[in-house]
Nucleic acid binder design. Sequence first.
DNA 1: TTGTATGCGTTATCAC
DNA 2: GTGATAACGCATACAA
Lengths: 341, 341
Amino acid sequence: MDQKKITFADIAKYTNFSKTTISRYFNDPDSLTVKNQEIIAQALEDLNYQENKLAKIFANGKSEFVGIIIPNLYMHYYAEMLNQILNTYDEFGYKFLIFTSKHDVEADRKYLQELLAYRIEGMIILSHTIGSQELAACGIPIVAIEREDAYINSVNTDNYMGAVQGTSLLIKNHCDVLIHINSQVAENVPSYGRIRGFLDTCKERQIKHELILQDLGHSPQEINACMQQLFAYITHKYPNVKKGLFLSNDTHANTMLNIIFRKYGTLPDEFRLIGFDDSPVSGQAILPISTIGQQIDKIAHEAMSLLVTLMDERKKRRPKPQTALVHKNITPVLIRRETTD
Amino acid sequence: MDQKKITFADIAKYTNFSKTTISRYFNDPDSLTVKNQEIIAQALEDLNYQENKLAKIFANGKSEFVGIIIPNLYMHYYAEMLNQILNTYDEFGYKFLIFTSKHDVEADRKYLQELLAYRIEGMIILSHTIGSQELAACGIPIVAIEREDAYINSVNTDNYMGAVQGTSLLIKNHCDVLIHINSQVAENVPSYGRIRGFLDTCKERQIKHELILQDLGHSPQEINACMQQLFAYITHKYPNVKKGLFLSNDTHANTMLNIIFRKYGTLPDEFRLIGFDDSPVSGQAILPISTIGQQIDKIAHEAMSLLVTLMDERKKRRPKPQTALVHKNITPVLIRRETTD
DNA sequence: TTGTATGCGTTATCAC
DNA sequence: GTGATAACGCATACAA
């Protein structure tokens, strides 16, 4: 097909310029006469030149690569986040080298080394395995999204505010008792804010509430079994009162809704329900589920924007080392659908 | 943090070997004495060496990059496919450079050029915008997944077989009339096989059927409106007979199921329903939906496996140009859940 | 088993 | 405005 690639040397020979001039044509065209620009442009056409970014990177040290380590793409949240991050290419021009975490620190460390070997200029991390202190030691700008971030920058959903909004809505719906169902999240993870937001709001408003923290299973079957059991527990413990259920995410909310709906053929007034994430399932449920919508597009953009700032600083002749960490919060939006009034 | 990077030259100086020997330590360690291996290993530790793959790639011309152009990550099918492709890293070692298509030929051409500039060794394409003839002209191995593939290799779901299985199940369920609802897919796209499979099976089994091909909308609202209208049409046209509905995908099937379920509080015996894809929504529906499961993991693995074979061939001293295109089909699996007997 | 010399395709630093 | 030359960090003949 195409034999050996055309290089600046070929173009230089063809045009009787030097390689330097060809290089300048690409990096500082105005330093050439218009006429010579045209000559070179024509030569590029004639020889069918294809630029070699690897050589360019190698020569100037700017890889324009950003590394990503993300837990999986099975969960819509992560898939959409990656989607939005990839979309920043058109604005910032950085390419992404992506690894999915195997929830195994050693494997992730290997991926990290591989990324570093490719001279990534910065990194966005969503995986939880490697501690932020270890990450900070890499010596490149790093931005975390929804994970422990004690020693690195981060952009997160304002989980606390989201929980306050959701809890407040359930209170406005005149629920007698509020129940928050979640798994046992660590306190240093941003999403722990959902629990704090729920508790604070309930206490402040002096409303009866219960916090249920337990393993909710991983497979659909396990989740279903858990929700089934929790439904039995809740209906037995709180009969004849209006129950406001705040689930940790939309998948759990949907599972719970299905259990209730199958039993009553509707969502009885006795139950109000709210999820978290605004994932597709919340809108496609048998009854569209009210939820807290994370602004994934904004989070992705803020993360890349912050990262680009940090990477740019590092490219300067006398880069100031980053002094204070940045932890940015993005406010979520309450989405009222049919499982709340 | 870390000043300038350690290179082979530094290690060579430190150990009194030559750069060549250091290089060999990495690429052919057995050619060194065990003792010298240890000396170098120690030096690597002492100096905290970090390998530079960019330099390596540049020197030997093997980028170990595979390019991907994929429509989006919003649809679960694409997200999971990308997930599975990324997972092949552990087996094949290729890194991926990924772009999401903007459904704009010019934008996609730009991405393609960018990928080529990074000297990708091969490419997996799921985007539809660029014709396969143009892609074939790139001069690198390319494997298509579920798109027009006249001039390039491909790995696809056996859509025809999937449709045959689904249609047969509906027939086995004693449906009086079979209805396939799909959008107007082009005949040169693999998923058109679903339509052929449906029609052929119905004709062969001499069963009453109807093929509904129309724009089904893109937003959840549009889809819901379409399904609502189709439901009215179907119930009016086929009253008092058992209707077997074969929807083009699980999202559509779920929307239709919700409409039926909200109306009757159950899925009446008069309706049997089957979707396509085995996406999460099919299992999380108010009634778990029967569906045709695409073996995304297998497709991804086959695609990479094929691509690796082609890329390897090209690295040989006298590579044979690929003679015949490979078009591989992966059989889907029928998943019987609660919307069929 | 180890070393020398050269090449990979750009950019960067000086010259002119 | 343009050119010669030296990096950049590693791989690979070819020697020894």
